[in-house]
């Protein structure tokens, strides 16, 4: 007889008993290792600096830990963690509006600070960044969440929009990016 895992047993008996806290800690640590860098990149696309992003990611995972101890998760955990991280970041930026760096400002700063890039590559990279920065808010978010490997359903959950909107948004954004990378490069 094959071995049955603890989550499988829990599913089988439909128990509401909370998982042992250490098991939840291990699960959160595993998700942290997997999603820390994607979250930092995503938060950066929202205008959050890397050091600030580290704080936000800590808060988000601590919230995830409490959430898992308390409730039975009702949606995809990656979608949950991206949504909570975005909300935490938005609150922070509202609280310190004067210090907030806009994505556009980051683009300018980063463009200036890449001298080692090849000239051709640099101009294309610059165009890509400019197009991404100019996208409507929701389109930009869909684009960056997709770049972090989220499924369309997870993107829809994270942003609170419909599945169809995600596909349409990505289609629009990649059409704009294609114009910036393909034809303009000729």
């Amino acid at each position: 007889m094959s071995e049955i895992s603890w989550p499988a047993i829990e599913r089988l008996i439909g128990a509401r008993a909370p998982e042992p806290a250490t098991a939840v800690q291990n699960e959160v640590a595993r998700l942290f290792a997997e999603y820390r860098a994607p979250l930092l990149r995503y938060l950066h696309s929202l205008g959050v600096t890397l050091p600030e992003g580290e704080d936000v990611v800590q808060e988000a995972f601590l919230a995830l830990y409490c959430h898992l101890l308390r409730d039975r998760p009702s949606q995809s955990l990656p979608a949950w963690i991206f949504r909570v991280a975005r909300n935490l970041a938005t609150d922070r930026m509202r609280d310190s509006a004067r210090d907030a760096v806009t994505p556009e400002a980051l683009v300018v700063a980063d463009t200036a600070a890449s001298p080692e890039e090849q000239a051709a590559g640099e101009s294309e990279g610059r165009r890509i960044r400019a197009v991404a920065a100019a996208l409507p808010e929701i389109d930009r978010q869909c684009l960056y969440l997709r770049a972090e490997g989220l499924r369309y359903r997870e993107i829809a959950e994270a942003l609170g929009i419909s599945l169809g909107s995600v596909a349409l948004s990505l289609e629009r954004s990649f059409a704009k990016l294609a114009r910036a990378t393909g034809k303009a490069a000729l």
């Binding site: 990149r41 950066h44 980063d110 890509i128 960056y144 770049a147 990016l177 990378t181």
Partner: peptide, 10 residues
């Protein structure tokens, strides 16, 4: 290209 640009920089 978009993914490479997004990752390589950060």
């Amino acid at each position: 290209k978009f993914t490479a640009e997004h990752r390589s920089r950060l």
